[in-house]
């Protein structure tokens, strides 16, 4: 049957329910596009045959192939759009700089989309007033206290807090830091919020 490759693309993405981004399946896309090209060419020649030789019995077959073309288009659009939603999530969870391992999973056009998205979001957040705007990717949970106890999960180097003090984030060291300075590092798994 036709369109098996296309649905395989969708299945591959659907299996990763938590929003992770698998490697862009360039080969899969190419195969679907080739199938579409072949279906379209067969239809073109059958349409001609139906017209010039009056072969109306070809119409169901033409319609059959057209359904397959639409189906392939839908699967690809669904695959690509869902990947965008995953890429969007990365901006919110990781920040604007992505780890190389994840960038490797994206195609050039996806990187371009991500950069544009990043830019649009930054422009929007800057426009919100004040001197620097408002970073709405922060403050994800309601604050309970100004300072929180954090444990360092890996070596991160020097880190400057509000009043200019510089501390060293060394693996397994524990610190008492302003909450809003830590949020991103906690999300990235550098720090761990310790609750006694």
């Amino acid at each position: 049957m036709f369109c098996e490759k296309a649905v395989e693309l969708v299945r591959e993405l659907h299996r990763m329910t938590d929003g992770q981004l698998p490697a862009f399946n360039e080969d899969g896309i190419r195969q679907v596009l080739e199938e579409m090209k072949a279906l379209y060419e067969q239809n073109q020649s059958d349409v001609n045959e139906a017209k010039t030789e009056g072969k109306s019995e070809l119409i169901p077959t033409i319609k059959f192939r057209h359904c397959c073309l639409l189906r392939n288009q839908r699967c690809i659009a669904g695959y690509l759009y869902d990947r965008l939603l995953r890429i969007r999530a990365l901006r919110w969870e990781y920040g604007s700089v992505l780890p190389t391992t994840i960038r490797f999973h994206m195609c050039a056009e996806e990187l371009e989309w991500f950069n544009q998205y990043k830019k649009s979001l930054a422009t929007y957040m800057r426009s919100l007033g004040g001197d620097e705007g408002l970073d709405i990717t922060q403050d994800i949970k309601p604050p309970k206290s100004l300072y929180i106890e954090v444990r360092c999960l890996k070596d991160h180097g020097e880190f400057e807090i509000d009043d200019g003090t510089v501390i060293l984030l060394k693996k397994n060291s524990q610190h008492f830091l302003p909450r809003w300075k830590c949020e991103q590092l906690i999300r990235q798994g550098v720090l761990e919020h310790v609750i006694s």
Binding site: I29, L33, M36, K37, Y40, L69, L70, Q73, I76, A77, L80, Y81, L84, C107, E109, E110, E112, W113, Q116, Y117, S120, L121, T123, Y124, S127, L128
Partner: peptide
Amino acid sequence: EEFAFAKEYLANTEVYLKAVALRHMPPNL
């Protein structure tokens, strides 16, 4: 500002879909 953001989001997404796959599809698709 939201209007600008929405317009950019639409354009960005359309450009992306077109560039990766749609432009390689048959003319009517």
